[in-house]
Amino acid sequence: MKSALDGSGPIFLQIKESIEEDILYGRLGPDEQIPSNSQLVSFYNINPVTVLKGVNLLAEEGLIYKKRGMGMFVSPEAPGILRKRFREALENGQLQALVRLAKILGLGRQELRDMIDKLWEEK
């Protein structure tokens, strides 16, 4: 869980994105329970209606499901859905920005590839 909501989008989206990130990075696994609404309210100091809006959106997108009387759990499909979505964002967002910056810096295609290869080996 992020320690604070410091992004600038609507607060309910920030809540949603913070949980999505936890699922993507495996901090919340399939069929694992997500923090309860009241835990989210007190952790982030935000209105319960706002929390509910974010959590409901996760449920609508099939990322979490409800167990009656127990709470909300990560759906088994969630990691797959998120990997697909983040992959698209990587291609259309981050990579585009990276290539644009590389061109501004006058880096050649091979130079950029070498940089990526070097980082790849480190991990």
Partner: peptide
């Protein structure tokens, strides 16, 4: 102020 807001929300729940 942070404590105050936190308590408003906690007790509201």
């Amino acid at each position: 102020r942070k404590l105050f807001i936190g308590e408003i929300l906690a007790d509201y729940m």
